[in-house]
Nucleic acid binder design. Structure first.
Lengths: 335, 335
DNA sequence: AATATTTATGTAAACGATTACATAAACCAA
DNA sequence: TTGGTTTATGTAATCGTTTACATAAATATT
């Protein structure tokens, strides 16, 4: 591996000149510039990023912490993040935390150790205190899941309103006994979605039945298992609102096993509009989050903080959309 | 941000001593060690990784280049990679190339610039020559997709045999007209799977019909579109072997639209055994790759190269398994 | 008690870049 | 010709670590 010294020696110039040619940071005579460039080519020289970043105390790199790369929901967000990042000359590196606080801590440690200029956190497991402290040390932005009341910029949707609209849709179809499959975690979105569910029920004058509510972990398996239980209720629910598409799919498979028809015997509504929700049969009615845009926005906000263009913290709420498909309304042939 | 110098000053010792305490690299008297540790705590000091890595010319970090994080197939592999990595004290960073040669080049550049100690490449778009050159500069391992004949370690499965077994299964069910939905790319796996398909046909004395073969890009959409075309053949195929589960699901949706029953009118076999293939209705018959193990193996091989434990290149082929589900054989209730 | 060994710590040179400052050469104006 | 600019390049400090080497103090050995 050749260094800038080797190049300098070969080109017969000083390291400073080589650096100038590489970075175009100041004038160099065309003749020497050419000598340097041939030396660079001959030695196949690449500047060592560690040295450069150390000196510049900037890496033009940001970390993106995702709880679970297997969740297709995050894939689309990451696309948005990446696109904006590369437009601005930043590289992104994904860190899969698996929702494991220990793993997350490892990556946060790297972040604090200046391996990157900042980070986008999705569904962080850190406490509000830890997050605030981190944000004082290094630029961060919360995307999708966030803790409220912290002095940290975040980008998300209006979860309460989204859930309200979804449940209102079910009510509009004539359902009276509507189950709720939520998420058992500390995130605000979980709370807000429950609130939206409750508001829709209340508005329609439907009594809230705690037995109709259960909590999973967004996964197919949890949706399946929970629905199995809910179907044992008497009278059983005729509709269910799930806070993830994966759980909605699990719920549908559960209903199928009981020989129930979806949507005739059980209407199912999901959340996220993952790619798969339109591939499934029946296609899933769901709330579409603008995942790509969420990613873009988060990255833009982060760059603004890193480059000091924006002071203070901001809250961004992007638009969502209810997408009605076969799992709540019988349709002809949809794909 | 405090540095090792600040800590040294505060503790009233030299930077060398601080470094020794932090790394436990040599004996320090308990009294001074304690002074150092309190200073570290008081200043909330974290060693700067750039400085450390620069000095050590080691980062204990590896890059994992994935073509598409939205593809759940890779998620499980990454889990394996991560587990082995963290067992050995390495961190991994995911780089989503989106199968875009330009993006891939950017990450490879970072790799060459010593941002990481090595990399695992899945489905690299680089030429054999570029790959070979890269492997001379820095440790790399190819995982799943690989180019043959290169002096680069790789980990994968026996694709020819896997395809052969899958098609043989279809033949065993009595099918005579079996379509093939492959992948249009330069990867060896695509070629080998086609070869396995051909061998099974030949062995059964079934004539190969080029009209029955078409090529997509592993996606749901391509499977859907291609199957639409194949179903127009007369006589139409009664079975299809797809080289990805996503395409298999697309094919099934296509058949459904034509009011064909799966598996009665069309038997469908996929490849990969992604999580979703068991969630779908009908559940997909597929070839299961040991994704987690592939990831583990790749990471182990990479560490061996990085740490100089193993010389030369190796080829690892892990076991696969044909998983028979509803999309080829009518079953009672399966989940 | 004199010497050899061990232990604890400090000094300073790396690692590979960037960049403020210095300097020499070339050019220009009067 | 002289002094003042401008231009091109080099020297050396710096970023934050680790670590080889040096040295002083403490301990062991005879």
């Amino acid at each position: 591996m050749s260094t800038i010294k080797d190049v300098a020696k070969r080109a017969g110039v000083s390291v400073a000149t080589v650096s100038r040619v590489i970075n175009g940071s100041s004038r160099v005579s065309p003749a020497t510039a050419k000598k340097v460039r041939t030396a660079v080519a001959e030695l196949n020289y690449r500047p060592n990023l560690l040295g450069r970043n150390l000196r510049k105390t900037r890496s033009e790199r940001v970390l993106v912490l995702i709880p679970n790369i297997a969740n297709p929901f995050y894939a689309e967000i990451v696309k948005g993040v990446e696109d904006v990042a590369s437009q601005h000359g930043y590289s992104i590196m994904l860190c899969n935390t698996d929702s494991d606080p220990e793993r997350e801590k490892r990556y946060v440690k790297m972040l604090k150790s200046r391996l990157a200029d900042g980070a986008i956190l999705m569904a962080s497991e850190m406490t509000g205190e830890e997050l605030t402290e981190l944000s004082l040390e290094i630029p961060i932005v919360q995307c999708c899941e966030y803790k409220a009341g912290l002095p940290i910029t975040h980008v998300s949707i209006n979860n309460e309103m989204a859930a309200y609209k979804a449940v209102k849709h079910l009510i509009g179809l004539g359902h009276k006994k509507i189950a709720f499959i939520g998420a058992r975690n500390q995130f605000l979105s979980s709370l807000r979605r429950k609130e939206g569910y409750l508001r829709a029920l209340e508005e329609a004058g439907i009594d809230f039945d705690p037995a109709c509510c259960a909590y999973g972990d967004y996964s197919y398996e949890s949706g399946f298992r929970i629905m199995k239980q809910l179907l044992k209720l008497d009278p059983r629910p005729t509709a269910v609102f799930c806070v993830s598409d994966m759980m909605a799919i699990g719920a549908i498979r559960s209903a199928m096993e009981e020989n129930l028809l979806v949507p005739e015997d059980l209407a199912v509504c999901g959340f996220d509009n993952i790619h798969f929700s339109s591939m499934f049969k029946p296609a899933i009615t769901t709330v579409s989050q603008p995942m790509y845009d969420l990613g873009c926005m988060a990255m833009e906000a982060l760059i603004n903080i890193i480059e000091g263009k924006k002071e203070g913290t901001a809250e961004y709420f992007l638009e969502h959309e209810l997408i009605i498909r076969e799992s709540t309304v019988k349709q002809d042939s949809v794909c």
